[in-house]
Simulated assay, not measured.
Amino acid sequence: MLRDRFMSDLKEAMKAGDKGRLGTIRLIQSALKDKDIEARGNGKEPLGDEEILQLLQKMVKQRQESARLYTEGNRPELAAQENAEIATISAYLPKQMDEAEAKAAIAAVIAEIGAAGVKDMGKVMGELKGRYAGQMDFGKASPLVKQLLG
């Protein structure tokens, strides 16, 4: 389970004195605790591994945007810090599909559920999110789905 891995990696980073990694793992645990509290308030269970992966993907995207803005604002030291956090967070995510693998997976899902046109895009995206959470960038997958359905 990812939660156990966070704890063991946190202890490991503490022992090694790796402050950057330690800080990033603490950020992950803090975000996870916030989401757990939010779920408990709504009468739901704590997050499972799939929801944790979605949270980690969101954290990576936020940091990518921040790094881009820091680079544009001529703040390379802050961009480097964001990129270091991205590397640490990405280590917990499964390997991302490249474009060819994503197209093949999308084509397989379209054939399997019998999607006939753009009106079935929601069904296809829902199925992809269920099967490939953490492995596919759905922002990039959406235009591919539209292209293959159109």
Score class of each variant (00 low, 15 high):
residue 3 R to M: 05
residue 3 R to Q: 07
residue 4 D to M: 12
residue 5 R to L: 11
residue 5 R to A: 14
residue 6 F to R: 05
residue 8 S to F: 14
residue 9 D to S: 12
residue 9 D to N: 09
residue 11 K to Q: 08
residue 11 K to Y: 03
residue 11 K to W: 02
residue 12 E to M: 12
residue 14 M to A: 14
residue 15 K to P: 01
residue 16 A to E: 09
residue 17 G to P: 03
residue 18 D to K: 02
residue 18 D to I: 03
residue 20 G to R: 00
residue 20 G to L: 06
residue 23 G to S: 04
residue 26 R to Y: 05
residue 28 I to K: 08
residue 29 Q to R: 04
residue 30 S to N: 13
residue 32 L to I: 02
residue 32 L to D: 05
residue 33 K to Q: 14
residue 34 D to G: 08
residue 34 D to V: 03
residue 39 A to Q: 08
residue 40 R to G: 15
residue 42 N to M: 14
residue 42 N to K: 12
residue 44 K to H: 11
residue 45 E to Y: 04
residue 45 E to A: 09
residue 50 E to N: 11
residue 50 E to D: 11
residue 53 L to K: 10
residue 54 Q to W: 02
residue 54 Q to P: 00
residue 54 Q to M: 12
residue 55 L to Q: 13
residue 57 Q to P: 07
residue 58 K to R: 13
residue 64 Q to A: 02
residue 64 Q to C: 04
residue 64 Q to D: 13
residue 65 E to V: 00
residue 68 R to K: 03
residue 68 R to A: 06
residue 70 Y to A: 09
residue 70 Y to M: 11
residue 71 T to R: 07
residue 72 E to L: 13
residue 72 E to Q: 06
residue 75 R to E: 15
residue 76 P to F: 10
residue 78 L to M: 04
residue 80 A to E: 15
residue 80 A to P: 07
residue 81 Q to G: 03
residue 84 A to G: 11
residue 85 E to I: 03
residue 85 E to A: 15
residue 85 E to N: 14
residue 85 E to M: 14
residue 87 A to I: 08
residue 89 I to T: 02
residue 91 A to C: 07
residue 91 A to G: 05
residue 92 Y to L: 07
residue 92 Y to A: 10
residue 92 Y to R: 06
residue 93 L to P: 10
residue 94 P to R: 08
residue 98 D to F: 01
residue 99 E to A: 03
residue 100 A to L: 12
residue 100 A to G: 10
residue 101 E to V: 01
residue 101 E to W: 02
residue 102 A to P: 00
residue 103 K to Q: 15
residue 104 A to S: 12
residue 105 A to G: 01
residue 105 A to D: 02
residue 108 A to H: 09
residue 109 V to A: 00
residue 109 V to K: 02
residue 116 A to G: 09
residue 117 G to Y: 01
residue 121 M to S: 13
residue 122 G to N: 14
residue 123 K to I: 08
residue 123 K to W: 01
residue 124 V to H: 00
residue 125 M to V: 11
residue 128 L to E: 12
residue 132 Y to G: 11
residue 133 A to K: 08
residue 135 Q to H: 10
residue 136 M to N: 13
residue 136 M to S: 06
residue 137 D to M: 05
residue 137 D to E: 13
residue 138 F to P: 07
residue 140 K to W: 00
residue 143 P to A: 13
residue 145 V to R: 10
residue 146 K to R: 15
residue 146 K to L: 09
residue 146 K to D: 06
residue 147 Q to K: 11
residue 149 L to W: 08
residue 149 L to M: 02
residue 150 G to T: 13
